[in-house]
Each structure stands twice: as C-alpha cells, then as structure tokens.
Amino acid sequence: MLKTKLALLIGCLSFGVNAASFETVTLGSKGGIQDGNLTAFMLKSEQDDNYVMLDAGSVVNGLIVSEQKGAFEDVQVPADSKYTKVGYLLKERVKGYLISHAHLDHVAGMIISSPDDSHKPIYGLSATNEALMNNYFNWSAWPNFGNEGLGFKLSKYTYTDLPEFQWQEVKGTSMQVMAMPLAHSGGQSTAFMLKDKVGDVFVYFGDTGPDAVEKSDALSKVWSTLAPFVKQDKLKGIVIEVSFTNQTPDKALFGHLTPNWLLKELTALETLAGKGSLNDLDVVISHIKYSLKKGEDPQTVIKRQLDEANKLGVKFHFPAQGDALSF
C-alpha cells in the first residue's frame, strides 16, 4: 500500500503491517512540453541507500525541487563531502540510469547534467543506447560523454545493453532489472522491472501505446511476465503513463495511453493473474501532457475518468514533482 514517509513510520510500528519494499522520488511528473518537470523517477530498494534513475527528463531541477519539499530529509551528506545535498545525491547516490527510449523529454536532464555528473552506467535496450550515442552524445548536439560513439570519448557514461526478459544486476544497488520492450508509435520503448533481494518487484513503464492501436503484442508479453508476481503478491507497484484524456482519438495518441486504454490493458493483466488480483495495487500515473489550452486541467480529467471506470480496485496516484512515495 502506498504511504507517505509519516504514514510508513506509523504503519511499521503497527502489528500486521508490512514494511515498504521500494521508495520512489518524482523528479519529473509530466510529459511533453513542460521543461523543468519532465519524466524522471528515482527508485531504491528499502534494503539499501542507493538509487537508480528511471528515465531522466528532469534531473538537477527535479533534485532541487525534491530537496525543497523534504523528499531527502533522511539523507545525510558526509561531513567531509564538498557537495551540496543535490550534488551528493547526483554524484554519489544515483548509481545509474535506466532509459526507456531516447526521446528528448526522457533524457534531457541527464544530457544537461552530464558535465557535472559522476561516472555511471546507462542501462537500456541496444536501440536506445545507439540513439543516445548517435543523436546526442556526438559532439554536435552535445559532447560525447559516453564510452562509445563519435569523436573523442569522455567515458563519463558506460553504455550497458540489456537483453530482453533477462535479469541483470544494477551495479551499486541491491536490485536486479529486467528490460521488456514496448511499442511506441512505430518505435521501441521499454518497461523496466526491478527486483529486490527478497523477490519483491516494481515496474516502470516508459511511453507505450495499447497493443490494439500499436498492432503489437508487446504489452501482452509484459502482462504475461508480470502475472506470476501478481499471483504471489510480489508486485508492489507500477509507474505507467496516461498522456491524454479519453477525448483523444486513437489516431492522435502517437504511442500513448488514455484512461480507457490503461484500464483495458490492466484488465488483461487481471485476466492472467486472477479475478480481484489487482485489488489495492498501487498504480502511479505519469507523463500527463501539459496543455496550453483553456479549460479543465488534463490531470483532473484523467483522474476523474480513471476513478469512474475503475472496476479493478487498483489505487491510482498522481505524484507532483518532488513527492517521495513508498511501496
């Protein structure tokens, strides 16, 4: 069950309440045009103190906002460190980037912060890493901070290609990761499943369209992979995108989800895992597109549409930038 830090503390002091398995900090909650608040989540297992970044649309600005909101109040910067808390977190506590795909709103924060970042792996499917080295770290868009690609290699980042549907170590943390391909408007994105030492899992979805619109079976394969963890009560939470309201026609989705499509896809997971198996599952909604048009905030509409049609018993959450959540 999702808890704030205060609720988590109270819960852990109560009988019959399990401690959390994972913690996320929302460095960026939006998709699209709201620079400074673009998709990025920090994740760590409660079994250790180090984080991995789940996409990186906003990094330093997200760390600043998160610190100001108290998300890192328990983090102590060593007395001999020369860095601020934001600097210490970026350089010492974030141990790598999991990049779902190389669209700019998912990587801009990493690119901009790279001159002052520490050496880290970039984990992604091979197509994602190739796009990063060819389109950004190429001495044209930006210096080559990678260990492969064009021109002189500064080797700040080490490209680490992830095989599909296989567990791999996330160095510097107690977690393992499995990369699962997604379909995104004719291109490829990624869902990352993170597993801790006791076998609990958390899943982060990059941008994805529904199988029926994408003419793909990518989400179907993800649900088949997750179903055993749901049956064993090991799936602790999901971050998944809903970019648009139900008023958006399928032809204008461009590889994204609406409330109706998300609920149809989650129903496919429930069908595999058993009736009622998603009851109380925490589902964090990400990548809501900021709108320049007058009228109701798209997030308000999306929340209402999800709540009204939710027959699965899942718990939808809409974190703002800087919010820390435990699962």
Rank of each mutant, 00 (worst) to 15 (best):
T160G: 00
V198P: 00
V59L: 13
D105S: 14
P181M: 08
L253W: 04
H317M: 04
Y88D: 04
A218I: 03
A127Q: 00
L132R: 12
K293R: 11
D207S: 12
L262P: 02
W139I: 04
L292R: 12
Y290K: 13
G16Y: 14
A7N: 11
T26K: 11
L2H: 06
P115N: 14
D323P: 10
Q166V: 15
S155M: 11
I302Y: 11
E214H: 04
K156E: 08
A309P: 00
D116C: 07
L306V: 12
V242C: 10
T267R: 12
R93L: 12
K30Q: 09
A252E: 13
S189D: 06
L235Q: 10
A273I: 14
F205T: 12
F229S: 06
Q34R: 08
A19N: 12
P298I: 06
V239H: 07
I240M: 12
M180E: 05
M53N: 05
W142E: 07
K197I: 01
Y97W: 09
G313Y: 11
Q188H: 04
Q168R: 14
L63G: 04
I112V: 15
E23G: 07
N147M: 09
S174L: 07
G124T: 04
K3A: 02
A40M: 03
K294D: 09
G28L: 08
Y157I: 11
P298N: 10
D105N: 15
W167G: 01
P210R: 05
V52P: 02
E46A: 06
Q299H: 05
P249T: 09
H101F: 05
L2A: 04
L263C: 01
T24P: 09
V203M: 08
S21Y: 10
G149A: 12
L154W: 15
C12A: 10
A7S: 09
Q299N: 06
D250Y: 05
N37P: 02
H101T: 03
F316A: 04
V94C: 03
D55N: 15
F244G: 01
A127D: 00
D161G: 01
E92T: 09
L6R: 06
L325C: 12
Y51F: 12
V222Y: 07
K82S: 03
S14K: 12
K315M: 03
V86K: 06
I285E: 14
G124K: 00
D55G: 04
S277W: 15
V94E: 01
K156L: 14
